[in-house]
Amino acid sequence: MTAPELEVERLEAAYGASQVLFGVSLAVERGETLALMGRNGAGKSSTLKAIMGLLRPRAGRVMVRGREVTGLPPYRIARAGLGFVPEDRQVFPEHTVEENLEIAERAGVAGREWNARRAFEVLPLLAPLRKRLAGRLSGGEQQMLTIARSLMGNPAVMLLDEPSEGLAPLIVQQIAGLIRTLREMGTTIVLAEQNSRFCLAVATQVAVIDKGEIVWRGSVAQFRAEPEIQARYLQV
């Protein structure tokens, strides 16, 4: 049996003195799309940041394709095969769209399939903006840019933090389509979301996080069959 693409074991993390993750465990197999769902403040973003090395884990382990990456600097974790799309997007505002992509361009563990040209093919709304400064883009355009940018590193696993948050339906559709395409290519995806409609449309697995702990996990079909889980952990 091969190791999961991404495995997180009893991960704990804190901002200064306030602990926010209390032993998060996840395992995502190759080609799966895991929806990490939970209320605002449940710990979704912190989980992704701790996996990525942007928030230093206090305890627990992160394994990428069978290799332990816990505590490594973010670039080593990225090179182990992770791509990251932060919730606040973090485009490089004084660089053009093209330059944003160029900075991230590198051969990854998944080969060299992605480059700027292909990114513009799968995100056609972005193509006419290639010479525009990223700081001048709308929120939705920036979101597409951050997704495209993370693809440039040819990751095996993508961590997407609320990619549909606050976006126009047309852009949400394009992003959903891209996530499906990625899944078909064998890319493993972790999707942090509050919006269960978007999640359920693209995910294969669901994990529900609450107060820094995973409280439920299962397939999308099982999740749909348990409305009380949705009511207990996802309603605001």
């Binding site: 942007l54 600097p73 670039y75 990225a78 990251f84 004084e94 991230a104």
Partner: peptide
């Protein structure tokens, strides 16, 4: 040069994209 300028603004993000910031 473009990477250096991006790192001047947002080193954590540049590192998360796989650039050896060290």
């Amino acid at each position: 040069g473009r990477t250096v300028r991006a790192a001047a603004v947002n080193p954590a993000m540049v590192s998360a994209l796989g650039v050896n910031t060290t």
